[in-house]
Amino acid sequence: MFDFVKTVLIALPKGFYTTFKHLFKKPVTLQYPKEKMPMAPRYRGLHYLEKYEDGSERCVCCGLCASACPADAIYMEPAENEKGERYSEVYEINLLRCIYCGFCEEACPEEAIFLGHEYEFSNDSRDAFIYTKGQMLANRPTKEKPFKKIIRKVRRIF
C-alpha cells in the first residue's frame, strides 16, 4: 500500500516531468538525403584506385590485395605496357562479396587501393556491383584522405 502511494505521488509525476523536459529538447533527427553525417576519416566505404602525379596507375597487379582479401572479392588479370611495367588489365571487385574490411588497403605495397567515404551505391541489378577498374580510378576523391600521409610514414618504418 505504501509502495503504491509512493508510486503515485513520486514516481508518476517524476516520469511525466522527465518526458515533459524532453519535449523541449532539440530533435536529433538528420534529414538524411538532404543532410549527411560527417564520416569518420577512417570510414571504409567504396574503394578507389590511386594514381601517381603523372597520371599513371599505381597498381602493379601484384595480387597481394586479392590474397589478403578474406571475402575473395578481388579478381585481376595482369598485363605489361610498352615500357615493360606491369599493370592490371582487368581489376574487379565484387562489391556484394566485399565486407569492407580494408585488408586490401593494408596489404597493398604500392598504396594503390584505398577505401573511400562513399556509401550510397545501391543498385537493382547484381551485375552493377562488379566494380571495374575504370570506375575505381574515376572514383578517386579530389581531396586526399587526411591520414594518408600518416599511412605512408608508418609504411616506411616497416
Binding site: 518526458t19 524532453h22 519535449l23 529538447k25 532539440k26 530533435p27 536529433v28 533527427t29
Partner: peptide, 10 residues
C-alpha cells in the same frame, strides 16, 4: 508530431 518531439524526433 508530439510523440516525435517527446522522443527527440521531428
Amino acid at each position: 508530431k508530439l510523440l516525435g518531439r517527446f522522443q527527440h524526433r521531428i
